[in-house]
Design a protein around this nucleic acid. Structure first.
Lengths: 210, 210
DNA sequence: CATTGAACGTACCAATCGGTCTGTTTCCGG
DNA sequence: CCGGAAACAGACCGATTGGTACGTTCAATG
């Protein structure tokens, strides 16, 4: 049931995702979304009670997507390697492949969009954004702690520091990628971070995809 | 002459800067700016021909501020140290002090705001944003090249890679800082990058402000 | 085949938006 | 002290905005 209905909802969310990523949330009018999604105003307000609710559902959608990607990449890495360091490297390589995928029209981080339009949103939306970024960091912290427990680093460093660094790098690289149109910026930065890890944990730089 | 006029202009730009940083550019109505700046609509359109022109002037203002900061910090660093590595470290420490200044209500990067609302702006504005970020990167590239010319790194790395990395880290840290309200995130990330440099160039970690 | 509720489509609305127009005040050189 | 330009102030305007009202389609169910 509600096959058609779900489809419209998806179209609206898809169009909203594209447009918000192009023009920001406040800069995207509902009519813009209707035009791109090819649905009517009635359809929109049938599925979403208000623009604010769209904001919530949109950020929830992204949160779901990202969690799925994280889980998939992490599971694959953990199934392939025993050493947490190798797992981490493979995870990052997987992320680089994902973010470099040219079909993916994302080209930016939706949480950053929301963050920089902070005052537009209610406490709930802000909470979700903070939650997701915190969760990302937490996942990295756990993994880095595993690495640190096994491999002594060449200098004193905390799992939190490393985790926050990789998240910062990715977020920042996505900004630069957009700002001066270098589509491979994010993947390159992630690769450079892997090089840093190799140096930090005194591992030979293994063959990484050029 | 035009003392009062300049003052109004500054007030408008100041209010716009605050509001745009809170709600984004599209999310900030001209009337909002008028209210906060305490000026009338007539005053606004006397100084700025349109909202788009305000966008241009606002980004130009930031570009000017940032160039000044860069020049000041760089000059001080170069006056204090001869070694480009020491200069770079001092520059970064200066930046950390600047960005941690609690009186500074900036709390974010205006270029990131513009970048994530890309489609709102004309080619000129986008050009300025890309230009500034490129210039930042270029300055870092030159300095890192000087460092690399003198100090052999422990692994192969290009000046461009390092330059793009520090810019990414700062941009990303500013996002995280906002997203989950950690006012010291940016300075901490910069410090961690300095630790990375210490490792990379095999320098003893010198006493850094906790 | 009638009923019903989900899934629309569309005309419409009040509020807000960026921007204009028409004055008035303020300043400053001659 | 005068004249003109810069620097406002604020009423006003058409377009756009998020949102509503109300009618229609359609598929499933009894």
């Amino acid at each position: 049931m509600s096959r058609k209905g779900e489809q419209s909802r998806e179209h609206i969310l898809g169009a909203a995702r594209e447009l918000v990523m192009e023009k920001g949330f406040a800069g995207t009018a509902i009519d813009d979304i209707l035009r791109r999604a090819g649905v009517s105003k009635g359809a929109f307000f049938h599925h979403f009670g208000s623009k604010a609710e769209l904001a919530r559902e949109l950020v929830r959608w992204h949160a779901g997507q990202d969690i799925e990607m994280f889980r998939t990449l992490a599971a694959r890495a953990e199934a392939t390697h025993d050493d947490p360091y190798d797992q981490l490297l493979m995870f990052l390589q997987g992320f680089e492949a994902y973010i470099s995928n040219p079909e993916q029209p994302s080209r930016g981080c939706m949480y950053a969009v929301y963050t920089y339009e902070n005052a537009q949103f209610d406490e709930q939306v802000r909470g979700i954004v903070a939650e997701v970024l915190r969760e990302w960091t937490a996942i990295y912290i756990r993994k880095f702690q595993e690495v640190l427990d096994v491999h002594p680093p060449r200098m004193e460093v905390s799992a939190r520091q490393l985790a926050e660094m990789i998240v910062s790098i990715i977020e920042g690289a996505l900004v630069l990628q957009r700002a001066y149109g270098k589509p491979d910026m994010t993947a390159r930065q992630s690769r450079h971070f892997r090089d840093y890890l190799a140096l930090l944990f005194d591992k030979p730089a293994q063959a990484s995809a050029a």
